[in-house]
Design a protein around this nucleic acid. Structure first.
Length: 216
DNA sequence: ATCCAGTGGA
DNA sequence: TCCACGGGAT
C-alpha cells in the first residue's frame, strides 16, 4: 500500500473509532497560541489551570499581556510548569507581534504559511512543534503538526526510525496529504488522543488500540 | 546531555 | 514514590 492510502486508512480508522476531536480547546486565536507555548512538555490539564488564571486576570489579549511584567506573567502561568522560562517565551512572542505586526495576530495570519512559519521559528522559545501548532490551530494555516506521540506511533509501527528529525516526520504527512487545514487539524488531534490513551510510553495498550490492525 | 520545574496518574 | 507530559535552548 502506498503512503497516501496508508495515511488515509490511519485517519479513517481513528476517526471512526474515536469520533471528531473539536480541537484546539480555546476561545480565541490568541488564547490558542498562548496554550501552544504553555503546553511545551507539559500536561494539558496544567495548561488549562494557567489559562484560567490568565482569564481571571483579564490577561488573554496581546495588549493586556504585553502590559504585564515578566514576574507577574510568570506568577499567573505558574501551574503550567517551567513558568519563568515560559513567561520569557510568551514575551518574546508578544514582541514579534508588537514589533512586526502592530500587535495583531491576524496580521501574522495574512502572511503565507512558509513566511509565518519562519517568523515564528525565529522567536526564542518557539520551536517547530509550537510553530506548527500556532499556524494550524490558531491561524488556520495548513501546517501539519507532529509531536512525540506521532513519532512513537509511527516508529512502533515500523514506518520510520524513532529518531527521525522533526521536518522529515512532518514531510512524511505533508508530502502525500492534501493541503487541508481541517484535515491536518483533526489528524493530529486524533494522533494525540491515541498516543495518550493507548500508545503510552510505558505499558502501551496495543490490543485495544484503534490502530491495532496496523501493527507490524 | 542537561536544564527548565509543576501536576496528576499509574 | 515515580514517571510522563501537545518541547526547546544551551
Amino acid at each position: 500500500m502506498d503512503r497516501t492510502s496508508l495515511l488515509e486508512s490511519y485517519y479513517s480508522s481513528m476517526l471512526s473509532e474515536l469520533g471528531p476531536s473539536q480541537w484546539w480547546p480555546g476561545e480565541t486565536p490568541f488564547e490558542i497560541a498562548v496554550g501552544a507555548i504553555l503546553t511545551q512538555n507539559t500536561n494539558w490539564k496544567n495548561v488549562a489551570k494557567a489559562i484560567d488564571q490568565l482569564k481571571a486576570a483579564n490577561a488573554l489579549s496581546v495588549d493586556a499581556m504585553s502590559a504585564l511584567s515578566a514576574e507577574r506573567l510568570a506568577e499567573l502561568i505558574q501551574p503550567s510548569g517551567f513558568f519563568r522560562l515560559k513567561a520569557k517565551r510568551l514575551r518574546a512572542f508578544l514582541a514579534l507581534l508588537n514589533d512586526e505586526y502592530d500587535g495583531q495576530l491576524e496580521a501574522l495570519a495574512q502572511e503565507d504559511c512558509a513566511t509565518a512559519r519562519e517568523k515564528l521559528l525565529a522567536v526564542n522559545g518557539i520551536g517547530p512543534e509550537t510553530a506548527d501548532s500556532i499556524l494550524l490551530y490558531a491561524l488556520g494555516q495548513p501546517s501539519f503538526v507532529v509531536d512525540a506521540y506521532t513519532r512513537r506511533i509511527l516508529s512502533r509501527h515500523g514506518l520510520l526510525p524513532e529518531d527521525v528529525p522533526y521536518d522529515e516526520l512532518r514531510d512524511f504527512f505533508m508530502d502525500v496529504l492534501p493541503e487541508d487545514a481541517s484535515l491536518f487539524n483533526e489528524f493530529h488531534a486524533l494522533i494525540v488522543r491515541v498516543g495518550k490513551q493507548w500508545c503510552r510510553k510505558s505499558k502501551p495498550l496495543c490490543d485495544e488500540c484503534p490502530l491495532a490492525t496496523f501493527l507490524p
